[in-house]
Design a protein around this nucleic acid. Structure first.
Lengths: 241, 241
DNA sequence: CTCGGCCATTGAGATTGACTCATAAATCCT
DNA sequence: AGGATTTATGAGTCAATCTCAATGGCCGAG
């Protein structure tokens, strides 16, 4: 590369950095305002003020208020994905990882519930494309899919069911549970995760299914499983603090 | 009752009927308009035109556009409740009834998906009270609760889990499944219901589940419980600090 | 039948808030 | 330095909800 090229790219980079810093400022301001007042309650003028710029400038970065919300939630899913991967990484085995993911998801969904609910608003926007929502969450859902696929490959999960059915049980249950927990004074998340994992254990070829219930008491394998679950919870806790 | 009373109540009744007919006309018009164009796309002026009255009149019956949507969804839940009870009635046994309810719910949710999604919008409204949403759906959810309660009373369902956890699994899974099915070319609902019922069968004391088998076991069960209790103590200790 | 009080109805306008655009400022390149 | 180009601004436009003073019609009393 010639010096001229370097200069130009350097200039471009700093320029780009300025713009990106501005964009980040808008996103931060918007997230605050949206979280504080909801979508209808949020005022573009207030977001501009918080971000330290004129109202018109917002529209150079985001075409509409909906686009702005879309960007905010997209950034949120991005952060969530990175954190989920980190939460899952230290665990071995499909069920331990799924449990870790369930814990993580439930906690985070509850922590940022208003923001997540806000995301559903985009579905009512005039020119809404379902594909866009999928795209935004693709990376996040891939964490779940990866775990399940690996579990199937290693024979820890029976491949008798479509993956998307497991996904719907997993995320559907957790979202509804989050709402319930928030509504009724924020009870413990542990029992919910235990229950969900208990249900999904049906797909574990080793312990699950009707065949196992043929009378044998709690065997060592099951106790080991419970130990794994307990340790997973503790590790999750440590990682969080 | 005196003739005067009769006259007055008769007058009041016809008057009331007029008002209620008017209200019903508004609700019908609003449901059409909301379904056709979404909430933001719906115009109060257009709803008034469809209902055959001036725009200002709408506001004599519903204080705001949000209130109007709220009334529309409330009416929808009412109709759904009646239909659900009818769908469940011919079946005997908790699991057969739950299966019927699952089928019914999934089909109807898919049929009126846009309207149901619209209901979530109310959560972002300025003066939203979660209790109101609960109240609207109480009768509908009571159908599920009634079946489960009866199942527990008759020993068809193990009472080892909180009812609300089952509820969240049931409705959470079905809502997510509905979305998935609608997105991917409206596949069969049967397999989804089968899968869900397969999971819930864990709580059937007759076909078995992990929780049920702890009767015959030796000390292993007790050891497992002691482990769980110890972990619970540790977790509480962590939470306190 | 007619008159008067009362309530429902109306739609033009007040209000609000997202979005635009002519103008100004800043930055870049030679 | 100075013109060219990109970026910023906020007063103004527009569209939609909601209000209210004025209107219309129903019903009982005289």
């Amino acid at each position: 590369m010639s010096p001229a090229d370097d200069d130009r790219s350097a200039a471009a980079r700093t320029k780009r950095q300025r713009l990106e810093a501005r964009e980040a400022a808008i996103l931060a301001a918007a997230e605050e305002e949206f979280s504080a007042h909801g979508f209808d309650g949020a005022r573009m003028a207030e977001i501009a003020r918080r971000a330290g710029m004129g109202e018109g400038t917002l529209y150079l970065y985001f075409r509409t208020k909906n686009d702005l919300l879309s960007a905010v939630t997209g950034a949120f899913w991005g952060r969530l994905t990175a954190a989920a991967e980190a939460a899952v990484a230290p665990h071995r085995g499909a069920f331990a990882r799924l449990r870790a993911l369930a814990c993580f998801h439930l906690e985070r969904v509850m922590a940022d519930f208003t923001l997540l609910e806000l995301a559903t608003r985009l579905r009512h926007a005039p020119g809404y494309d379902p594909q866009w929502e999928i795209e935004q969450r693709r990376a996040y859902v891939a964490v779940f899919d990866g775990i399940v696929q690996q579990g199937i490959d290693r024979g820890e999960i029976a491949a008798t069911v479509k993956r998307w059915m497991l996904r719907d049980v997993f995320y559907g249950t957790l979202e509804y549970s989050a709402r319930t927990l928030l509504l009724h004074g924020r009870g413990e998340t542990g029992p919910v995760v235990d229950h969900l994992m208990g249900l999904l254990a049906v797909h574990d070829p080793r312990t699950g299914g009707a065949e196992v219930s043929d009378g044998a008491g709690p065997d060592l394998a099951r106790i080991a499983e419970r130990l794994d679950r307990a340790v997973a919870r503790l590790e999750q806790r440590d990682a969080a603090s």
